[in-house]
Write a protein that binds this DNA or RNA. Structure first.
Ligand SMILES: Nc1ncnc2c1ncn2[C@@H]1O[C@H](COP(=O)(O)OP(=O)(O)OP(=O)(O)O)[C@@H](O)[C@H]1O
Length: 699
DNA sequence: CCGCTCGATGTTTTT
DNA sequence: CATCGAGCGG
């Protein structure tokens, strides 16, 4: 009897190859995650490898939790000593331990997007700009630069700084980074950037390499440059690294995910074991075939074959609704009439805001549901307010949370006074609590006393008591009493309190800095507790998960594929991969729904059409019910073959007869060039490669 | 300094 | 629609 008895031959082979590098490149539902988790259990239980020598990384909190749970079950022991987490939490862990080597103390804070945004806004207001962008745009640019390891100093050297726009951007970027540094804080990109720096440190790297001897990465297709480099550095000594992924499920390009990381993996190490899995265990053949009919339209797809011995199952339902409410009521009705356990259902959508109406209509039918993701629990005002005290106590240099704490509840201290305090702090190298001495007013004295009292209190009490003390001493509840949703807010605060109690149960001397860092990386509802509720989430957060019945809501033009993506073939392909992910989450039943009308930014749009991707789908697997005729004429061409995503021209630099080298297929000869793709003959046969992606695959 | 009103503005997706 | 910032009166 081996743990591996429950794997098929190929999976077993992959699981047993413990030493050396390996890659599992396989389609959805073929058991990649299963293989990884079994492999880990096997390594520990049957190979005697120490848990602490294993590092298993993935991309989202949900996936990491899921993986941890599965391993725990298989091993039947806890996974506390094993690092199974997202890249970011792994990074934070290392930075806590070794950050002092690169100028951070271990109580650093993590700034989420809101925090970063407020810094940027402040900077913009202060500077006089001629070429002003939106704060959002600045942040996007900054995080892109960081992924390329271009810090402000590097940027200054890199661009022509006499150009006004460059100069202005540099000023903002520099100021932003200085502000983070002063606050002993990092944003999400910094976590990876500085983690990579640690893995380059001559003294620290060997320690890490010896600690994390066996590295496994799930969803490897979604790693970005920094993550790639971190892994590479850690693995360079023992080279025990297994990565798994599926290029058809790469859906985080907007965040810097680079598909060539997985496509080039075999070049990174000698003697890479490559395993392909082709049997899908998850879905009915109807679902699988439908998904295949979609993804094969992507020119980046390597065209893996996937088959299943599962039953054919029901056809996939397409439902036309007049309004989003009707769409949601239809879903609610199907769930209600099924009489099945609610946890068998998931409702997926492209954008978070779609969840509101669905949640509301489910509730109206008495169906319990849980929305995952979206506005994080920790980004609610009342939670942020209270957290700002904890953070300030932990790190009195934090400017963002200092401002938040001192102004909530209102203390008749405003912008002017705060600016004075900040300036005074900077000038005299004081933290913000010390700097409250800037003037002698009773207001400031009172706040200072409060904070000193709380800091003192925090030294002898646990975090839950500290939170209670903050609520009491600031009279926080009285402050929010007159706001809308007072009761909800109190419940949220209660939940915050309970969650701390919960953590303290398992970790009796939970440190404040550790607590703060942990929750900065979580959105509260990441753990998929097996409650009897219908789960609602974006397709992005559903990656790696599976459900008996999946509803894909808002399967309509403009929304999915998102209208913003239509300009760029790469983005359309990414949207199509997203659809592939959505479809392949379903085990038994799949419903696609869309609405003819939808309100966007306060304006209702009518006569909306089904998603362009519907025309990719093989209609043999579709059961189109409640067909609503469109008042507008359909295109004259045969609808079944009509593809609204007809491509745009592309002047190719490739010529017929030219010899090219493909990253996976090796040497080949160009046969045909058109505006969509080039056709190349390789030893393995003829392949079409998207024209605008050719550079990615051909050297 | 605070809170209110009014007008401008705008969304993918997550850590 | 709903969120955010500017501007104003108390
Ligand atoms: N050899 C097997 N025997 C029985 N069930 C299997 C086997 N391999 C995989 N499965 C089941 O198939 C389902 C999909 O597996 P898993 O989630 O590991 O796939 P995956 O390749 O990671 O999928 P995705 O890429 O979509 O995340 C799971 O329910 C898993 O338990």
């Amino acid at each position: 009897m081996s743990i591996l008895d429950n794997l098929n031959d190929m999976q077993k082979k992959a699981a047993k190859l413990v030493e050396g590098p390996g890659l599992i490149l396989a389609g959805a539902g073929s058991g990649k995650t299963r293989t990884i988790t079994y492999k880990i259990a096997y390594m520990v239980k049957e190979m005697g490898i120490e848990k602490e020598n294993i590092l298993a990384l993935t991309f989202t909190n949900k996936a990491a939790n899921e993986m941890k749970e599965r391993i725990k079950k298989l091993m039947n022991e806890n996974t506390a000593d094993m690092q199974v987490s997202t890249f970011h939490s792994f990074g934070v862990k290392l930075l806590r331990m070794y950050g002092s080597n690169i100028g951070f103390t271990s109580n650093f804070n993590i700034y989420d997007t809101d925090d970063s945004m407020s810094i940027i806004k402040k900077i913009i207001k202060k500077l006089v700009l001629r070429n002003e962008l939106t704060p959002r745009a600045y942040l996007a640019k900054i995080s892109k630069l960081k992924e390329d390891e271009i810090m402000p100093e590097d940027y200054e050297k890199m661009v022509n700084i006499s150009i006004n726009a460059n100069r202005e951007f540099y000023d903002i970027y520099k100021e932003y980074q200085d502000e983070l540094k002063k606050s002993n804080s990092m944003d999400f990109s910094d976590i990876l950037y500085y983690t990579k720096k640690l893995t380059e440190n001559k003294r620290i790297l060997p320690i890490l390499q010896d600690r994390y001897r066996y590295i496994l990465v799930d969803e490897y297709q979604d790693t970005n440059k920094l993550q790639y480099a971190i892994i590479k550095n850690l693995a360079s000594k023992y080279k025990n690294i297994w990565v798994v992924g599926d290029e058809d499920q790469s859906i985080y390009a907007f965040r810097g995910a680079d598909i060539s990381n997985i496509l080039n993996f075999e070049k990174d190490y000698d003697n890479v074991n490559i395993i392909r899995l082709e049997q899908n265990y998850r879905s009915t053949s109807n679902i699988l075939n439908l998904a295949n009919s979609v993804i094969k339209n992507n020119m980046t797809s390597l065209g893996k074959k996937l088959w299943t011995t599962n039953e054919e199952g029901k056809k996939i339902v397409l439902f036309d609704a007049e309004t989003p409410y009707q769409e949601a009521r239809y879903i609610a009705k199907v769930i209600k009439l099924s009489n099945r356990n609610l946890n068998e259902f998931a409702i997926l959508y492209r954008t978070n805001y779609q969840s509101r109406i669905i949640e509301q209509e489910l509730l109206a039918e008495g169906i319990k549901s849980q929305v995952y993701g979206g506005l994080s629990f920790y980004s609610r005002k009342e939670i942020k307010d209270l957290m700002s005290y904890l953070i300030l106590i932990n790190n009195p240099n934090d400017s963002v949370n200092f401002e938040r704490a001192i102004t909530n509840p209102k203390r008749k201290i405003g912008a002017k006074t705060i600016a004075d305090i900040v300036e005074y702090a900077n000038k005299n190298n004081l933290n913000y609590i010390e700097a409250l001495d800037v003037n002698n007013t009773a207001k400031l004295k009172e706040f200072k006393n409060l904070m000193e009292y709380l800091i003192d209190f925090s030294e002898n009490n646990n975090i839950s008591s500290l939170l209670q003390e903050i609520i009491d001493k600031t009279e926080y509840l009285a402050y929010i009493e007159k706001e809308d949703n007072y009761e909800d807010r109190v419940l949220n605060i209660q939940e915050l309190y309970n969650s701390i109690i919960e953590i303290e149960k398992n970790n009796t001397d939970l440190k404040l800095d550790e607590y703060i860092q942990t929750i900065s990386l979580s959105s509260s509802l990441d753990d998929m507790s097996d409650n009897s509720v219908v789960k609602l989430m974006t397709i992005h957060s559903s990656k790696g998960l599976e459900f008996e019945t999946v509803f894909l809501a808002g399967f309509e033009s403009g929304l999915f594929p998102n209208s913003k993506s239509l300009e760029d073939e790469n983005e359309i392909e990414e949207e199509r991969r997203l659809l592939y992910v959505a479809l392949t989450r379903a085990e038994k039943e799949l419903y696609l729904t869309y609405s003819k009308s939808r309100m966007v930014n306060g304006v209702t749009i009518y006569n909306k059409m089904v998603s362009e991707f519907f025309y990719d789908m093989d209609k043999n697997y579709i059961n189109h019910i409640n067909k609503i005729e469109n008042p507008y004429k359909k295109p004259a061409s045969n609808v079944e073959n009509f593809n609204p995503l007809k491509k745009i021209k592309n002047d190719s630099k490739y010529k017929i007869g030219q010899i090219v080298i493909h990253k996976s297929y090796g040497k080949g000869k160009v046969k045909k060039v058109d505006d969509k793709a080039i056709t190349v003959e390789f030893s393995v046969g003829e392949k079409r490669i998207a024209a605008n992606l050719a550079d990615k695959f051909l050297i």
